[in-house]
Design a protein around this nucleic acid. Structure first.
Lengths: 216, 216
DNA sequence: TCGTGACTTGACCAAATGGTAAAAAACCAG
DNA sequence: CTGGTTTTTTACCATTTGGTCAAGTCACGA
């Protein structure tokens, strides 16, 4: 009796993961990020992830039930981190500066976390088959709340009148473009740190000009 | 002797594809667009493409040597169509209107050709392994030429001073976002035709405001 | 109409892939 | 130490996948 139960993480009594478990799950998720972000879900293979994690495939499957379980765990883990800057966008003395700060934070995240950006881009590109519920339940409410906030700022004349929903889309599109399309950007302008500096300048000037209220 | 040679298309004497060949190659490319754009290269399978083209797999491989050959042929075929609007961006009486027309054309293409957009997005996302040369040889010169043109317009005071390279990136990012991230956009604002109208309005206002020269 | 070459198909193959079983090894509380 | 538990590995499996082959079937010019 009392056969060993794989340390999965289904809702319910969650045993306090041992140190080994924590370390190995982390290694697996790191490797999965590397591979899934570069190949997409279907294009990635367990062998590749296992190699990348310096771990045997069956050992990996001891920590996660399946390829899909790894992918889902990865998305769940990173979703929060990914949305943190938007959550941090709250009422402030300087709404314009708050948005600009959000924009620049997102741009910085594209530079420093391109794999995360591509992971989500891949998932969305393919119709978000494993993330649909999360979008509905996690992103949608946050999105609606922040749109309401932006609308309020517009009504108060703090920032120029723009469509809040599409403003956010534009911010995401522009900032994440530098991570998701890095291969293209690299060919066209090179991806030096000087290049990033120019991107930052352009993006900042553009959104500041777009959002600065102009007297009628 | 004189065994039947598959109707490939390597450089050299190109026989004038029979009607059947033209029809079937077209069917295959259409199916490949459907599947590759939704799954990426590695995620797509020949069986899926064959099913989608209502054709047996060996028959498909009679027209194209390999999975990769299909993918490359597809990219080549669509690249020209995809870049046409940028090529059409030329010197004009009204530079601002020329750019605006380019922006709106790209946005319209995202609405009407989302699969093409996603096909390229998938390829770039994964590092453009099968398109690197094409980017260098095809896109780069065009990109440089148009940046020079835009720079000229700026010098002439026809449009506001913006970084030409990053202006193009921004245009691509914003317009293609609506095709590539349709799954997300759909969840957040619904993808009705009214939704598209709002997107169009936002995008037009934004770029017009960004590019309209303002007196110092 | 008939033959020849273009087109199509069913059967097949080797490799890769997601996943399993069970034994061996490492770990750790008593 | 020691006995049980957790972790890791070796060997394996069924299915899928990209691709081949030889034998058809079809189209069409003479």
């Amino acid at each position: 009796m009392a056969t060993a139960v794989p340390p999965q993480d289904p809702h319910g009594a969650e045993k306090p993961l041992s140190r080994i478990q924590q370390r190995n799950r982390q290694r697996i998720l790191e490797a999965a990020l590397e591979v899934f972000s570069a190949q997409g879900f279907r294009g990635a293979t367990l062998d590749e992830i296992a190699d990348c994690a310096a771990m045997s495939k069956p050992n990996m499957l001891y920590y996660f039930d399946s390829k899909e379980a790894i992918h889902v765990a990865l998305l769940n883990t990173l979703m929060q981190e990914w949305l943190a800057p938007l959550e941090a966008l709250d009422d402030a003395d300087e709404p314009l500066e708050a948005i600009m700060s959000y924009v620049l934070t997102k741009l910085e995240m594209s530079r420093r976390m391109p794999r995360e950006s591509r992971l989500f881009a891949n998932e969305i590109l393919q119709g978000a088959p494993r993330m649909g519920p999360h979008l509905e339940a996690g992103l949608k409410p946050l999105f609606d709340a922040k749109c309401a906030l932006i609308r309020q700022w517009i009504d108060q004349g703090e920032i120029a009148a723009v469509d809040p929903e599409h403003l956010l889309f534009t911010i995401w599109a522009v900032t994440q473009h530098y991570a998701d399309f890095e291969a293209q950007v690299g060919v066209l302008v090179g991806h030096s740190s000087a290049g990033w500096e120019r991107a930052r300048t352009h993006v900042e000037k553009m959104f500041r000009s777009l959002l600065t209220p102009r007297p009628a």
